[in-house]
Design a protein around this nucleic acid. Structure first.
Lengths: 118, 118
DNA sequence: TCCATAGTTCGAGTATCGTCGAACTATCAG
DNA sequence: CTGATAGTTCGACGATACTCGAACTATGGA
């Protein structure tokens, strides 16, 4: 991961509303929850919520999947892992000082995550 | 750590220049480096650099210590740890899915978890 | 077909951020 | 004291981000 990319992820999380959304999805786990449920829990206007969801999607931190009338959003744990790895890589001039973080099982469930967002 | 506080940290890191500064300090380790060295490596105007250093300091991600004419900046690894812990806490509804991250020698602080960091 | 629900896109107003020249403070050497 | 170096603060400008009402698209049910 490059600095620019990491900065985009961090900037995406660097807003209270988006961070709250992301945390909600992290806690929800791979199952995810739908948009209106997020809006209800966070008290966000639909347009505002959609704006933030789009932002998080664009940078790859979350992904949405339509299921009939609902769109289930879920956190992309693999991206999160990469971000944390980036933040801590080469820490202290390369001396091993922290374990590798791996959130959930990111190896088996990441299938399609490429640019669906136009 | 609360969402608002975490968002501030993430926002601080969510800018390419500041992230580059922080990464430089993370790699430099606890020894830290002085401002002009950062400016040289990143090709940043003094005023701009100072602005970003102040921002990072304000949120507690780095700290500066004057040493004669130089000010040595170093990353605050404890804050970083807390941030990462926040991001991954309650992941997947509390199922243990990742090890605790501990960067460098902040272990002693995190052992005494009741202690105030700052 | 028509309506209701779920969610997105558009547009505009406001607020905040990032940059950098210039002036300023702090420290040190002579 | 004077000058040089290290770094900060100030001011102003342009750029970007956030919010939200209103209109729009997509899906499903009667």
């Amino acid at each position: 991961m490059e600095t620019l990319n990491a900065a985009e992820l961090l900037a995406a999380l660097g807003h209270e509303s988006r961070l709250a959304i992301f945390r909600l999805l992290v806690e929800a786990g791979p199952a995810g929850i739908n948009a209106s449920a997020i809006g209800e829990q966070l008290g966000m206007a639909p347009a505002t919520l959609s704006f933030h969801l789009a932002h998080l999607s664009r940078v790859g931190l979350i992904a949405g999947e339509r299921e009939s009338r609902f769109i289930h959003y879920s956190a992309n744990f693999a991206t999160m892992d990469e971000l944390i790895a980036f933040l801590t890589s080469n820490c202290c001039q390369g001396e091993a000082c922290l374990p590798k973080t791996t959130c959930c099982d990111t190896t088996k469930k990441r299938r399609a995550k490429t640019g669906k967002t136009a």
